[in-house]
Nucleic acid binder design. Structure first.
Lengths: 207, 207
DNA sequence: ATTTGTTTTAAACAAGCGTTTAAAATCTTT
DNA sequence: AAAGATTTTAAACGCTTGTTTAAAACAAAT
């Protein structure tokens, strides 16, 4: 695997790695410079300050994060298939980047009134038309009457939380890393059927 | 409401409040002292160091957190009723202490190989006999065949995540604090029926 | 009232922080 | 090869960090 060539990319890579694992308050400028294999001053020569560098990293991470949740909505599948595919993609993404949800939520909490907003990604979300699609599916009776907020919460919770609470759950059940990796694969199928059974119940009595 | 009387309790209260909202790396000793209305030296006079004080706070918080998840298991209810009551209690607890899950998971990640373990609480968990109870319920066909790890994960995810991802979800859907508070009340009932429907499905064809 | 012990404070400590400066090293252009 | 511009470094800046010291304020006991 080829690593970054330019100095600027080296810094970004190092910063992303360190920020993701320790958070903004949990690391130092010198730690990032060391990870990038260079002087502290050079980091600031390219990015002016720790905070400026952080903002750039945060934006790219946030963008990837939101994109992973949204690209499914642009497909031509049925709503039920979309939900199923969304869960698959989320687990795939979070297996590669398990620290991202914790990182995003922590930094949003640290920087409440500041520039860590998500307006553009939010607009893209609305433009996919998935809201209208869900409303129609509920009207026709295909889908259970669940508001979009709770729908979002259910999917996010059951996808993200297993990766966020990994340490606690492993300790709680005395599991090794490998065991937990396998558990996650099993768990994905469980929550998928739980969610789909709930959202798209089989008609029982009438019709 | 009466506040703490002794100096030691004042420090503990202040430390708990600051640690919970900002985490260990996100706050300073002087900030805790200020919150307690006193000098920095006095905090160290009672607790020797920032880390020592933190460990005491972490233990009490962790204890409360685990207790909130476990006390339901000691009741004499059926397994289905236990799950239902557990969700109620979790939402009740997390409404009062919404920062605790994030705090616990963050500090576990920061202090991986260190003294933030949970062995005693873990033993109590096994002693409630809920594992045996679940195994029996699965054998008799009363409960779906879901391993205890996934069962734990499902409940934790759907209870804790709405409180952990509050800021993100509010921004995503443009909700006020009051709106989100109401959403949580609605959401609790939704995930309760989703989880119970899944774990204890109504027999359809045979019998 | 004076002594003794405890609690609280102001001030200082070395170390580490984010950031800047100025000089060295390297690359570009002529 | 020399000059100029760019990249990288070592060293320092002032400030904040966690922690300690020594003295002040207070309480209790003789």
């Amino acid at each position: 695997m080829f690593k970054a060539s330019t100095t600027e990319e080296k810094i970004k890579e190092a910063a992303k790695s360190v920020f993701l694992s320790k958070g903004f308050s949990g690391c130092t400028s010198r730690e990032i410079a060391k990870e990038a294999g260079m002087n502290v001053a050079l980091v600031n020569y390219y990015f002016r300050s720790k905070n400026q560098l952080f903002l750039i990293i945060y934006q790219t991470v946030m963008h990837d994060f939101m994109l992973s949740m949204m690209e499914v909505f642009s497909t031509e599948l049925s709503l039920k298939e979309k939900v199923s595919l969304l869960i698959d993609r989320e687990y795939e993404f979070l297996t590669k980047h398990p620290e991202i949800p914790t990182f995003v939520l922590n930094e949003m909490a640290r920087n409440k009134d500041a520039e860590l907003q998500i307006h553009e990604t939010l607009n893209n979300f609305a433009q996919t038309g998935v809201f209208v699609e869900a409303a129609n599916a509920q009207m026709s009776g295909e889908m259970r009457q669940v508001d979009m907020v709770s729908l979002t919460m259910i999917i996010m919770a059951n996808c993200q939380h297993p990766f966020m609470a990994r340490l606690l759950t492993q300790q709680l059940h005395g599991m090794t890393d490998a065991q937990y990796d396998m558990q996650i694969i099993k768990h994905k199928e469980i929550i998928k059927s739980m969610i789909l059974n709930y959202l798209f119940p089989k008609k029982s009595t009438n019709e």
